[in-house]
Amino acid sequence: MNPAPTPTSDRLSDYLAADTVVDHGHPAIRALADALRPGDGDPVEAAKTAFLFVRDEVEHVMDAADPRVTWRASDVLRERVGICHAKAHLLAALLRAQGIPAGFCYQELSALHGLNAVYLHGNWSRLDARGNRTGAGGEFSLDVEKLAWPVDPARGERDHPEIHPAPAPVVVDFLMTAQPGPGWYEKGLPRTL
């Protein structure tokens, strides 16, 4: 069983902030967030719709063998492709644009894997919109974690329960300096925070 998700900040406003990476003030992010918002304004349905969009409509670079590198949420949306971290940046932006607090979580698998946490009904729940094309099993659930990949401690894998208001600097630095091309993600993707 995974440890309970724990926010690193006591201020929910930190999980609604925009920055260079989570640029939810961008017109394309705002327009999509508005389009995904259900008519009744239900935040759970809004979160689920945003999750499904990012999981199913944005390709994971490894699954698609795509040479492009994206890291800013608006760029991920424009290009419709990104590694797990980039997809997490987009999901956070879409949620925050709708006033739903969202943060960033990590797992140490064969490399550092990025996912999100969302705050709804007074609780944090982790969501993993990586994409399910290659055996991953990420599903939207607020009650039971259904992440893309289970952590296997016997293989040295580790789950980080912390919920960060901003993406890890080691991830952002890697993505901002990565050179596009085949297998770019194999050249220095961080293994730990």
Rank of each mutant, 00 (worst) to 15 (best):
G41S: 07
S110I: 07
H121S: 11
A64M: 14
L127T: 04
D42P: 00
A65M: 14
A166P: 05
V76H: 07
L142S: 01
A178Y: 10
P165Y: 13
H89Q: 09
R126A: 03
A88S: 15
A18S: 15
H85D: 10
P167Y: 11
N2I: 00
S141H: 05
R11G: 03
E162T: 10
M1A: 11
M176V: 05
R80P: 00
A168N: 12
V171S: 15
L189V: 01
A31C: 05
P3D: 13
Y15F: 14
I83H: 09
A46N: 14
R37N: 12
D66R: 12
E57M: 10
A28C: 08
D128I: 00
Y15R: 11
P167G: 10
L36Q: 11
F53E: 01
D143G: 08
Q98P: 00
L115E: 04
Y185Q: 03
R68Q: 09
I29D: 12
A31W: 08
A64H: 08
A47S: 13
A64Q: 10
G99W: 09
P67A: 13
H160G: 03
W184A: 01
A86L: 04
V21Y: 06
L12R: 07
D34L: 15
G103Q: 05
P101A: 13
L52H: 15
L109D: 13
P7I: 12
K87F: 08
A17G: 03
A33F: 15
R126I: 03
M1L: 07
E157W: 09
V44S: 01
E59Q: 14
Y119S: 01
A117I: 09
